[in-house]
Design a protein around this nucleic acid. Structure first.
Lengths: 317, 317
DNA sequence: TTGTAAGCGTTATCAT
DNA sequence: ATGATAACGCTTACAA
């Protein structure tokens, strides 16, 4: 690989002149052309490490995701990349496969690689996380969960639940089964559920509650033990749960109730209109994350918490 | 940020001693402990750029993918990451969103970042690709397509088609509609189709052929104009096409034929057993890619082309 | 406008 | 076992 020294020699100038050429310093037209020619011929590219050794920014940001095979993840990443590409910044995606240890490791690893910032799609922020985040001294924003001490982007889970509640109330649905997840997951397990249950309660409606995991398999299990009335509506905390239940019910060949999920997963369209879904603006969340991160990097004032709204276009029936 | 110099000073030794400590050189137990203590306290991490400036390897490999929201992509990436993690190598995933220009750019970008190697999940290898690949002088393996001048990993598309053909023959299916894609895509459009059509031909069976794009939307369109006999089997070149057709047929509430797709997409299980699918070993493909890449990096002999087999566990009906 | 030289934070090669 | 010292490829004062 050619170095700046080689180019300088070949062009018959000094290293610094080449450096200036590269970085837009002032040089005579003549030398400019000489250097240009050599650069073209050799296909010379400056060594990024040598560059980064001096300059502080790497033009790289890290995105830590819990998994790749999720609609939420890929859509958020799309939002992130779209924003970042405009600034000519690359994204280094690190998949942790839901392993918390790898999540922590990744924070250190990315910091070591001197990324300009980190976007963490969080499932749960532990003490370990906080320790790592403090330690690395690298701008971080988390999306999907909120934390008082961190810059966070969250979806409006309470309102998401409420939007479904409103729809149920409007359409006079009284027999509701909610298949949720553990309240350990604040956003999905608690907030989303509260958003659904509270307004319903005001109307004297109390859904049946069944707890599931996030896994499609477990949801299928649950589908087997569910009893449905004619006018039942099943609300599932996630699209995957909705799909799992749907599948079981489909195989059972009994009644197929309306099922409502959360996430806006495209796949639910395949079984629309049986499954309806509350849409989350993942792209926007990703873009917002970049926005917040940028502000943080540039020491501009930022809002600690950004809330992204959701929407539910429930069918009229 | 602390540097090796700081650590050296704090521990009262020289830079080189610290460096030796870091890299497992020979040092006395005493100094080792002194340094260890300081490193612990400060949370010191060596600067990777300074390291990479000397060492040739970065412990980073690049994975260029055409899209993130695809089962094939995420599964292959999983295979890649599993292998790589064992060697303590990170993956830098670059998503090109099916934009060929970004694919080319990414090759240059990754090379600039001095990745140890590149895995390219290819849709089509153009002249531009070859030019870039030659230019960067960085080990590359492509997966999903084969190219005479490149290290490639491919799925056994011909056999995949043949496996379906065998099943059709065995179960006496004579009325078959094949929804394929353009033959511009060698692997999917041509090889897969040939694998299906050739054996059928030997048994005097000639499927109807309809050309689709890869998009689920287009497949839905096609579903609308399809006519089905009682004992029809629809074979779709991809799971997404299968799903699209399924959806349309479902809405039409007419007959629901058996539909066979390719890819092993988990989502098809949701509508099993209507949709069956030929499974591809994406994980293995990813692992193999890493394997080949490693050999290439270490100048060991490698097979130019690795073929990954597929399997189809067709239902007995 | 151009060149010289001193870093940037490591590792590697010498001596000691 | 340890410490100087010279790279690595680049940027950036500072001189010229």
């Amino acid at each position: 690989m050619k170095t700046i020294k080689d180019i300088a020699q070949m062009a018959g100038v000094s290293k610094s002149t080449v450096s200036r050429y590269l970085n837009g310093g002032s040089i005579s037209k003549n030398t400019k052309e000489k250097i240009h020619k050599v650069v073209e011929e050799t296909g010379y590219k400056p060594n990024q490490f040598a560059q980064s050794l001096k300059a502080k920014r790497t033009g790289l940001i890290g995105a830590i995701v819990p998994r790749l095979d999720s609609y939420a993840t890929t859509e958020t990443l799309k939002g992130i990349e779209t924003s970042l590409l405009k600034q000519d910044v690359q994204t280094m995606i690190v998949n942790t496969d839901l392993c918390m240890e790898r999540e922590i490791d990744s924070i250190y690893m990315l910091a070591k690689r001197k990324v300009d910032g980190i976007i963490l799609m969080a499932t749960h922020i532990s003490e370990e996380h906080m320790k790592a985040i403090k330690a690395v001294d690298c701008p971080i924003v988390i999306v999907g969960q909120s934390h008082a001490d961190l810059l966070s982007i969250v979806h409006d889970d309470y309102n998401a639940g409420k939007q479904v509640a409103n729809w149920l109330i409007k359409h006079n649905k009284h027999h509701i089964t909610y298949v949720g997840v553990s309240e350990n997951d604040i956003a999905v397990g608690k907030t989303r559920k509260d958003g659904l249950f509270n307004p319903l309660k005001e109307h004297g409606i109390q859904p049946k509650f069944i707890e599931s995991s996030f896994s499609i398999k477990d949801a299928q299990q649950i589908g087997e033990n569910i009893t449905i009335r004619e006018d039942e509506v099943i609300v599932a905390a996630t699209d995957n749960i909705a799909l799992g239940i749907y599948h079981t019910l489909l195989k059972a060949e009994g009644m197929m109730p309306t099922i409502i999920g959360f996430g806006g997963n495209k796949i639910t369209e395949i079984v629309a209109p049986t499954i309806q879904t509350v849409k989350f603006k993942y792209n926007l969340a990703g873009e917002t994350a970049v926005d917040v991160l940028n502000k943080c990097i540039n020491n501009q004032p930022v809002e600690k918490l950004s809330v992204i709204d959701t929407y539910f276009e429930g069918l009229d029936k």
